[in-house]
């Protein structure tokens, strides 16, 4: 059995999931409250910085459409749900705790170089 030579840039077969998987995210907010606005801006910035071109983010206003909260068992807002890649994860708050969020999204490897979240 032969081993691949060590390399700094992993190929597709050996790359960690967080570098190639498509992320499907849903952010549940309530109207135009400052916290909801901050949550939207923070998660969009994180996505653009770390998941550019490989994420789908849907923002759902449960103040306008409460019924949409039922399927995901939302109990508070703002709530971010990651449905893909598995496992399903949920995060509560205005998404300003960037490092915690990155860790939860399995994006923690590059976390040290991330800019701080806005609107904190």
């Amino acid at each position: 059995m032969t081993r691949n030579p060590p390399t700094d840039t992993p190929d597709a077969a050996t790359a960690p999931l967080f570098l190639s998987a498509r992320y499907i995210l849903r952010l549940y907010v309530t109207g135009t409250t400052p916290r909801s606005s901050r949550a939207i801006a923070n998660i969009r910035m994180i996505c653009e910085t770390h998941l550019e071109g490989r994420y789908d983010l849907e923002v759902i206003d449960i103040a306008q459409h409460p019924a949409l909260a039922r399927g995901e068992q939302i109990i508070a807002a703002p709530t971010l749900i990651k449905t893909a890649p598995l496992p399903l994860r949920r995060f509560i708050g205005d998404m300003s705790q960037t490092e915690r969020l990155l860790a939860g999204l399995d994006l923690h490897i590059a976390a040290e170089s991330f800019p701080p979240g806005i609107g904190c």
Binding site: A63, P66, A69, R70, A77, I92
Partner: peptide, 16 residues
Amino acid sequence: GEVDALVVEGSSGPRV
């Protein structure tokens, strides 16, 4: 105090 709203499941569906 990091959330704006709570969602409670009622007989007529979720209420915010």
